[in-house]
Amino acid sequence: MSLVVRRYAPQAIVTIIILLTVMFFYFYVNPETSEAFSRADKALSDWVVVITSFALIVGGIDILRFHLVRMRKEGLRQAPFSAVTISLLVLMVLFALHGWYLSYADPAAGIAITTQPQFRWLYLNVYAPADAAVYSILVFYMASASYRAFRVRNPMALLLLVVALIVIFGNTTVGGLLWPGFLSLRDWVMTVPNTAAFRPITIGAGLGIIILGLRLLTWREVSWMGRRE
């Protein structure tokens, strides 16, 4: 019994929903059924919108738990930093809740969660620049790697380098000064050989989606269930 509710029932739900979503899209009986299918289909998509929101909250709480554990385990060296993370997390949520409260208590003020002033200050002045810097720091490693690791060892690497140079000169304005043809040559590279090179990957992605769907349908894909019993 316990295995039924723990494993088989969720897997059965997956199978039924996949079959339903495909059926809602492809099957046509008469206008009334089509209308009902369309409504049910939209309802299912909306359910995911709601559930994903809860999943994001769970993700945030996971980070909170992670830092609480680190504070306890790693002692004074880590504690102040984890405390910063935890307090900022809690502050952000409190400000958001304040904005949420105001949106109902005083709708005329026009303040919602994302426009709550303190919340906005924190995401514009802490989250935004840090996010930008974290993602862009890769530029340094890339510059260093092009000096240390980009070696023309064989014809394939030579082809890669030649194409890269064409696209680099096409992308930058300095390329236009050297030879005006770089821009159209880059466009040709992108629209002809590059499109052809990435087309099998696009087709492969499509096949991947079909295979994943079939694996879920036939209960072969179980990684989404988390821990095994």
Partner: peptide
């Protein structure tokens, strides 16, 4: 900290 708080807040907003 801000990223996690932001993601919880935006989930609540949605």
């Amino acid at each position: 900290g801000t990223a996690a708080g932001y993601s919880i807040a935006l989930a609540l907003d949605s």
